[in-house]
């Protein structure tokens, strides 16, 4: 393919190819501080023109690669960097068999990991990004990788994808220099990427044992309630893209995780409250 870049995020190496220069240039900018990958990539992503003439006329990016979702809709070229992110997520979600994948953000302090699991809109990505400005190390905003043998969490600190109000929130906590270009009119509204800080990148190969699991939910009155292991187990299987395919290894890893690490459901009206709750729960461990 005409334009290409290699990226290594935590333990995962991607090769991203594109029919256009712009998405690759955007990735180069977002990931400029990351070490270059060596050897053979784990996954290939292709950003392709749907039809040959669509490279120039109403350019439209089809997201393809090692693993493809046939029903995926193409995106505008203006949102090419989002297409690349979707492509990388897809490869990891569909192909990964080395770690148990959880749809969760994670941060680390003192060698122990806080895992925050939730759907889009739960605020897990923003919370992780805010905590990262307050002495925690960012491990990831979207995927937590759990080692099948040791149960440790591995970092996957990609550029955090912030949407709509979360962008304005984070501009209050992090310097604008760390933000990528703003995309408007994406399927999820306004979107801006936040580059992880230098520490997160420098230490991205350091694992951490999970010590607390949270299920945050943005928008309600402040509340924190311990969650039983059975419920945590079920919710985490739903939050995993590869629990089933991992078979016995997935079962052993997840049962061990929920029976050894406490889980709390947290409701919060604003980020400041959430941060205070997190610190409180963490100190009480």
């Amino acid at each position: 393919m005409r334009h290409a870049i290699g990226l290594k995020i935590g333990p995962v190496a991607f090769r991203v190819g594109s029919d256009w220069a712009a998405p690759i240039a955007a990735l180069q900018s977002l990931y400029r501080d990351y070490p270059a990958p060596v050897g053979v990539p784990d996954y290939t992503v292709r950003l392709e023109a749907e039809r040959p003439w669509r490279r120039w006329v109403r350019p439209s990016v089809a997201v393809r690669g090692d693993y493809i979702l046939p029903e995926a809709l193409p995106l505008d070229l203006a949102h090419g960097v989002l297409a690349a992110e979707i492509g990388m997520n897809l490869q990891l979600a569909l192909g990964e068999r080395r770690w148990l994948l959880l749809h969760a953000s994670s941060v680390e302090r003192d060698g122990r990991a806080l895992i925050m699991s939730g759907e889009s809109g739960s605020g897990k990505s923003t919370l992780a990004a805010v905590l990262a400005t307050r002495g925690w190390r960012l491990m990831g905003d979207e995927f937590a990788l759990i080692d099948l043998a040791t149960g440790a969490a591995r970092a996957f600190p990609r550029a955090t994808s912030l949407k709509n109000a979360a962008i304005d929130e984070m501009l209050r906590h992090a310097p604008e220099a760390r933000f990528g270009a703003e995309l408007t009119g994406t399927p999820k509204g306004r979107l801006r990427h936040l580059r992880p800080d230098a520490t997160a990148i420098a230490r991205m190969d350091e694992p951490a044992m999970p010590a607390l699991i949270l299920f945050p939910q943005y928008g309600g009155a402040e509340a924190a309630e311990g969650m039983g292991s059975a419920e945590a187990f079920v919710r985490l299987t739903q939050a995993s893209t590869n629990y089933g395919p991992l078979g016995r290894a997935g079962y052993d890893t997840l049962t061990r995780l929920v029976t050894t690490v406490p889980t709390v459901a947290v409701d919060y009206p604003d980020t400041a409250t959430a941060v205070a709750l997190v610190e409180q729960l963490w100190d009480a461990l």
């Binding site: 190496a13 050897g39 053979v40 784990d42 192909g95 068999r97 080395r98 395919p245």
Partner: peptide, 12 residues
């Protein structure tokens, strides 16, 4: 890195 790729493929 090839051995890693192969391990993943075998698990799949």
């Amino acid at each position: 890195t090839v051995a890693t790729w192969c391990d993943n493929a075998l698990v799949q």
